[in-house]
Nucleic acid binder design. Structure first.
Lengths: 260, 260
DNA sequence: CCAGGCGGTTCCAAAATTCGGAACCATGTC
DNA sequence: GACATGGTTCCGAATTTTGGAACCGCCTGG
């Protein structure tokens, strides 16, 4: 196991749920001996990937991650084009929009477009969620080959909220429906009372794929309003597919860094 | 040289000026042989620290840096408190506010508060600039010990814009003035026609230090207006120092990860 | 005021990884 | 068809990393 692997293992311990960690936390989470943890944390701190709170001695992501994270935003084109369209839809419907990418079997929120409705922002950028339990997560999965999907979903199917697919077969049924209709829908899954509809967009040029979704309160919307969202999304999908040269039938073969 | 060191060396090649790099760029910038570069780039890509554009084959910071960069924001307290105050000052004066940290002899912008005046945002968050040529950069340096300053400034004093201190002695004169008045001023330095005033804030609790500055067009402001900015800053500084327990006379001994 | 825990650091020999030169290869282009 | 670009793979030598153990400074509770 290389030094880099170890470093990454530590970095992966941080999440929105655990934005900072103590020495003991890191030891427990990685299962590494004290000396190795000590050396590695020091190395990561010295190089700016981590910072240490001088008072509590806890570790958190460092200045370097902040700088590089800003640069990652530059990788635009597809995302900013989608964001522009999403902004208009959100302005018209009042709902909240999300753009996310797939990483393994999880999705990471890249952009959020706050809506005007009282439903407040629940998934800030950087948030990582199981792709199986979100509308645009499943929309992205639906565009992969069955073999790829099988490889991404953990061998022991995870325990998901009640309305999410409960096993691999149910999942494939829902993905097939998405493949037919082009739109993915979720309700009362990751968050109780919250529903969303989304679709996946894949650049014909670079092959990168993003998920675009609109999220709303299930209680506060009528069936007619949800049908309207679906129409809006379908129109946005058609326009973006045309702009980006997305061939719907073409399956994604390789997605960057998404093995985990 | 450890694998981690090499990885960091590559990551440091990226900047706002060079947000993506080709294989050859990385080889040239690091001076490493082809095989090592190949292996390392692959490792970085596989672990999510870098991404590769499938079309151009160029490398850029990856999803993991985006996620961790968002978490870095969580490290708030001092910064968010300062941001709140700065927001009010910017609303009153119409100028643009910056919060930055010191890293070695450079500063990195953490937050920006856009003003209402036509002077547009010039330094987005994540931007790295020589601390010697900015008002809050010098304000932060002024709070270090002379020995620490000498250690941070490169042995061969860098070539700076005309109005910046041109050698170590001039620098120390300006820092002494900042130490006396508590406020740092710059005009026509990093950017022609742009002036700024700033100060450094150091948490009495954690010891971390940030720079807070207000930036304006030199042409479009009168001396009276600049004096007003100075009063506003002095008042904000006094308030924040009280809130954070900042003892002005106490010199910063160690600042995180700021050796480079 | 001593014991014990936390958060480390340092040491060392064994084990694992990295290093870099060289050969090779797939694409795209002149 | 030759050449450049952007890699990958191989291999022995050289360098790092590893983890157990001992040690240390600080703080807290008894």
């Amino acid at each position: 196991m290389s030094a880099l692997t170890n470093a990454i293992e530590i970095l992966h311990c941080f999440s929105s749920a655990r934005p900072d960690l103590s020495f003991a936390d890191v030891m427990a989470l990685t299962g590494k001996p004290k000396s190795s943890t000590s050396r590695l944390l020091r190395a990561l701190r010295d190089c700016g990937l981590l910072e240490q709170d001088p008072h509590t001695r806890r570790y958190r992501p460092g200045l370097l991650t902040f700088e590089l994270g800003r640069l990652h935003r530059a990788h635009d084109d597809l995302i900013s084009m989608a964001e522009r369209e999403l902004r208009e839809v959100c302005a018209r419907t009042g709902h909240t929009g999300y753009i996310a990418v797939l990483d393994g079997c999880e999705q990471v929120v890249l952009r959020i477009v706050p809506g005007s409705n009282p439903l407040r922002v629940v998934n800030p950028p950087g948030q990582r969620t199981p792709a199986l339990a979100t509308s645009n997560g499943r929309a992205m999965l639906a565009r992969l080959s069955d073999a790829d999907i099988r490889a991404r979903v953990p061998a022991t199917y995870p325990k998901l909220p009640r309305n999410s697919p409960q096993n691999f077969k149910q999942l494939m049924t829902r993905l097939d429906e998405i493949r037919r209709t082009g739109i993915s829908e979720a309700a009362d899954e990751s968050i109780e009372g919250v529903g969303s509809q989304g679709f996946a967009l894949k650049s014909g040029e670079t092959g990168e794929m993003i998920g675009i979704a609109v999220s709303y309160s299930v209680q506060a919307t009528t069936a007619a309003e949800r049908a309207n969202v679906r129409r809006e999304l379908a129109a946005m999908a058609a326009k973006l597919r045309r702009l980006t040269g997305d061939q719907l039938d073409q399956v994604v073969t390789r997605v960057q860094a998404g093995t985990r």
